[in-house]
């Protein structure tokens, strides 16, 4: 079970992030989670939103380099050790994690961790076998 994340290439330039979020806001896109990987010259912005297809379309029509990336969303309890147990399953299965970030559900004690790996099928199988609940697009976008 995989979900769509939006990946955006973004120049490390004053005001650029504000411009991007303005574009999303004008299209009524709601951001669930975001993470930025930055270097001295550029960053890669990763977003989980309520309507990924529409978000990518509106970004591209504004000349922003954006694309959809398949990622894994896993539900966790918001308690010590929950993230560690998920990452240990992947480590034991020898599946490298390219990047990860997490967010809390606005309701209750749920957390959601986003995982980007090279081999999605292997990771999904290993996590399911380890008893981790994976979230569908509907689960995440409506969280």
């Amino acid at each position: 079970m995989l979900i769509d994340q939006i990946s955006v290439f973004i120049a490390n330039k004053h005001g650029r992030l504000a411009e991007l979020t303005d574009i999303l806001s004008s299209a009524q896109i709601d951001i669930r989670a975001l993470s930025i990987a930055d270097t001295a010259d550029f960053g890669v912005l990763r977003l989980i939103v309520n309507d990924p297809a529409k978000a990518v379309e509106v970004l591209k029509s504004n000349n922003v380099t954006a694309k959809l990336t398949k990622v894994i969303a896993a539900r966790l309890d918001d308690c010590p050790g929950a993230l560690a147990s998920v990452l240990n399953i992947l480590a034991k299965a020898d599946i490298p994690v390219e990047y990860t970030y997490a967010f809390l559900s606005p309701r209750g004690a749920d957390a959601c961790v986003i995982l980007r790996v090279d081999d999605n099928d292997a990771a999904v199988a290993a996590l399911a076998a380890g008893g981790v609940k994976l979230l569908s697009e509907t689960d995440v976008y409506r969280l």
């Binding site: 990946s7 290439f9 990987a37 270097t39 010259d41 550029f42 890669v44 990763r46 591209k60 380099t65 694309k67 990336t69 390219e98 990047y99 980007r116």
Partner: peptide, 18 residues
């Protein structure tokens, strides 16, 4: 300029490219 259709969202890949 990065080619819009071909960009990798991995910083590792982008740094390797440059």
């Amino acid at each position: 300029e990065l080619a819009s259709e071909k960009f990798s969202d991995s910083v590792k890949d982008l740094e390797a490219l440059s």
